[in-house]
Design a protein around this nucleic acid. Structure first.
Lengths: 136, 136
DNA sequence: AAAAAATTACGAAAGTTTTCGTAGGAATAC
DNA sequence: GTATTCCTACGAAAACTTTCGTAATTTTTT
């Protein structure tokens, strides 16, 4: 039987890169590198261009990214879905820091954060939705 | 001015150890090591005693743990609070994988998880609580 | 009292992630 | 057409995390 290639969970730096791509669509290394550096505080040291390049080449190898070659430069895009990756990340965090309880994580996230009225409404609506579908 | 010692965010292995301590109170290395190995699947390799010992010694140095010497063996306890640590961990995850939006994380956690009726109720109650206190 | 078992300390290896320097080539500017 | 800029490739260093072997000491067992 042919084994489907296992794509590893992204590291922290890799997640940062993926976020930029999920938000902005496929982009060049230059764009990503600029975006990462803009997000950084003035205190932190700037990320070198070749650092980002190398990371993205590794991600390509791991199967986290795909790319097209346009003109001289390469354009990268995510090879994994944001939703699935976020779920994967959450699973890890829930296990590592919340004793496996996702609802503890939710309670903590809500309790220690300034969530806007609209967002709270959205969350409540989702809960009602879940209750309707699950416990009818 | 005297700089308060900065305690670093725990690594993944360190979080596993802290969880055992938060749940069971102060304990020996032996207890922690046993607990960690019990939680492991039969597939994973067992963690050696000295591995756990070394980790906890490092955590002591970092200021993540404290200890008392009772008889011949040492008893360790967390030097940081569970709540604060969880908040710290959440902040990182929210930044790394959820574009800084905690409510996105909450929506994702609720959406892709089998949360029990009771837990959903608890969460709803908390939201109502927050709304009352914030937007009165 | 000798052997076996359990404990801490510690250095170092092994593994992983992040960063960067250098080289080579192609486009652009002067 | 030469110099400068911009890009990729790639190896290797640096930094961080995890694992373990060995030694020294103390307690427990035989």
């Amino acid at each position: 039987m042919i084994q489907k290639k296992i794509i590893p969970t992204p590291t922290d730096s890799e997640l940062e890169i993926l976020q930029v791509l999920w938000q902005n669509g496929q982009q060049t290394v230059r764009f990503i590198n600029d975006a990462l550096n803009e997000k950084r505080g003035a205190d932190q040291k700037e990320i070198g261009y070749t650092t980002t390049l190398k990371l993205m080449q590794i991600m390509l190898e791991k199967g986290l990214l795909e790319r097209d070659i346009i003109e001289r430069s390469h354009i990268y895009r995510p090879a994994i879905h944001e939703k699935i990756t976020q779920e994967q990340v959450l699973r890890t965090v829930v296990n590592n820091a919340f004793n496996g309880s996702a609802s503890n994580l939710v309670l903590r996230a809500l309790g220690s954060n300034n969530t806007s009225r609209e967002e709270l409404e959205k969350i409540k609506k989702l809960i009602t939705e879940i209750e309707k579908n699950t416990y009818k």
